[in-house]
Amino acid sequence: MPRGGARAVSGPPPDPRSLRSTKVADKGGWRTLPAEGRQGDAPEWPLTTPADRELGLWDDLWAKPQATVWEDMGQELEVALFVRTLAEAERADARVDVKKMVRSYLDSLGLSVAGMNRNRWKIAPPLEEEHVADPVAQPAVRRPSARDRLKVVPSGEGS
């Protein structure tokens, strides 16, 4: 068994806000994915005849922001294998090793927070609609705090 040394997923995931990760990001960089997700239809299903559940998952996944990267990298087969494995893992009698494979796919495809960090992906903030001030809106009422309940008690002069 190998000992010591770095492993592919050893240590904490990179943090886009840390100074050290920023230095590493200058070399590799973080990729910002569009908040609105991938536009267009899902690619053609690459495996044998899919079940209805698999087609539903397939369409949903190809609308996610991560799908822009999968498309660039030609990962249709890997995503299809994930879909098939996920559909199998959803069954009540699914084996534990199948569920572990789903977790691995989630990380490698960037569908989990840890996977997003390891792949150095972040999702762009959604475009905000223009906020129109409501002239009827009431100002926020200040809630009393614990400090408001405290009273100053004068010290007794003769006690």
Rank of each mutant, 00 (worst) to 15 (best):
E90F: 04
G11V: 08
L150Y: 08
K99S: 00
R53P: 03
A51W: 07
G56T: 13
G29H: 09
P43Q: 03
V9M: 09
S104K: 15
D134F: 09
G11R: 11
T22A: 13
A137S: 14
T22L: 11
G156R: 13
R143F: 06
V69G: 01
A133G: 06
D41R: 15
D72R: 11
A35G: 03
Q75F: 03
R7T: 15
L127R: 15
D41K: 15
N119C: 07
A94M: 05
P139S: 03
T68C: 09
A114P: 00
W62V: 07
E129R: 11
G37S: 09
L57Q: 07
R31K: 15
A8C: 12
R118F: 04
A87N: 02
N117G: 00
E90M: 07
P14N: 06
W58R: 12
A94L: 05
P12K: 13
K151F: 07
V9P: 00
E128A: 14
G40L: 09
R3K: 12
P16I: 09
A92R: 13
Q39T: 15
P46M: 09
I123M: 03
G5W: 10
G156M: 03
A133R: 14
S10M: 10
W30V: 02
A87V: 10
E71N: 09
Q39D: 15
A92C: 02
E78M: 08
P144V: 08
M116S: 14
E36Y: 12
A133V: 14
A146N: 10
Y105Q: 06
R149N: 07
P14D: 10
R38E: 10
D60R: 13
P2L: 00
P139Y: 01
V141K: 08
S18I: 04
L47C: 11
G29R: 10
